[in-house]
Each structure stands twice: as structure tokens, then as C-alpha cells.
Amino acid sequence: MEKAIEITSLEFEYEKDSKVFSDLSLSIQKGEYVTLLGHNGSGKSTLARLIIGLLEAKSGKIEVFGKELNEENIYAIRSNVGIIFQNPDNQFIGSTVADDIAFGLENHQVPHDEMDSIIKKYASLVGMEDFLDKEPTSLSGGQKQRVAIAGVLAMHPSLIIMDESTSMLDPRGKKEIRDVVKKLRNENKDLTILSITHDVEEAFDSDRIIVISNGKIMFNDVPNKIFEHEKELLNIKLDIPFVYKLRNGLKTKGIDIDSLDEKEMVRLLCQ
């Protein structure tokens, strides 16, 4: 199977002798939805910046869709990768929603008469088709992030990196983005998504979770397995979903509930 990302023995430091990564290796398959989970300062955003070449590794190899990240390949790789950052206000550059989505298209010299239909297509994919003439000030954070996603999709990336793109949003905004991501996955099975977050409920949506702490991979597994490690996750400042916390807590009080389904748990408890 084709690999979307392949990282081998990556080493990186911002300052001399304080390594963020000393020997990191991981791989992500094409079409996979992977969450990189870690606390503030764990190195997860640094990793995203390394993958798109905004930062340069000290040693090691990063391959994106089989191409090694180097000076020669960097633009080819970037044209295939879209990234959504954390702050909705820092990535809205157009004066209207339509202008913002058009920005990348203009940079790639897409003919003007084709642009309109492309803009409409992706605006409606993220549910923003009624806002094309709106200015950024009249949009909520969630709406701005959806526009950022539309702008990225219009460039047909094979890989989308979401760098804490919901952490500054209110509950409605978070839900909007989660729904859009689910929709994208359904429409295009080949699209690879790498989501960086510390929101465990959001991480639950993905195919696989990679837990990072102090620049090292601590766990790399499907969500169900990951959250069995309550102690370790709490130790590295993360949380576990409610059902796990409840089941484990009841167990220490001598109440064994062998289920992680809320309804079933209620039934067993009320017997």
C-alpha cells in the first residue's frame, strides 16, 4: 500500500542541545485518518511544520508520498499537502469568503472563468455556499476554519494536516469541523488526514492514534486500545474519554462493568 508519510530517525532541535526529537520514526498510509495526540509542548506541532518543510530537520528522513523532503522536492510536496492552522483569524487573507478560497487558485494561475465553479463547489462542500460575499468579521471562528478548509481542498491536496484547528473554536465550531472532516472522509477515501490535537473525544473519530510525549512515540494504536492506558495518559497531561474513566473508577470501588457503551453501562448498573 502507498505510504502518505514515512519518517525515519528524525532528529530536530530549536536550540543547541535541547532536542525536540532525537530518533523519531513513523509512517502513515494513504487514505488513513491519524491523530497525533500530545500535551502542549509535546512536539506535535513541530512535527507538522517539519513535514511541510517550514522547519528543517537536523538529521533523518521525511518522505511524503514517496518523495523525500529536500530543497528539490519541497514545492512538489507542498503542492500536495494542505494545512489548517489553529487560529482562524491568522489564516483568513481574502476580503470575502470567495476571495479567500480564490487565493490559492490565483497563485496557481487557474484561469478566471474556471475559478467561479471551483469556489462554489468547495464552499458548498463545507457548507459555506451562502456566505461567498461575506467579510471575515461577520463570520464565526468555525465558519472561518471551514473557509480555510475549502481553500485547501480547492488545491486538491492528497494530505491534509489539521494543526489544532478546532482548539480555538466554541462547541458549535468544533462540531462543524468534526462533521466536515467526516464528510470529506466519506467523499474521498484516498484523502489522508493527519490531525494534531489534545482533544480525546475528537481523537476518537480517527483510524489510529499516535501519542507523543517529550518527542517520543508512547503509543501507536487504534483508539479503543489507546485509551486502555489511563495512568500513562494522565501522567503525560492527557485525558481519557468519559466511558473509560467511569468504568475504571467504578472498578476501583469494586463495581465491575464490562462495557464501554453508555446505554449498556446504564442497564448493567440499574439491574
Binding site: 500535551h39 480555538m168 480525546v200 485525558d239
Partner: peptide, 8 residues
């Protein structure tokens, strides 16, 4: 607390 990890 916006943007902080669970423990933060």
C-alpha cells in the same frame, strides 16, 4: 482555558 491541554 481555551487551547490548553486537559491537565493545563
Amino acid at each position: 482555558t481555551a487551547g490548553l491541554d486537559p491537565q493545563g
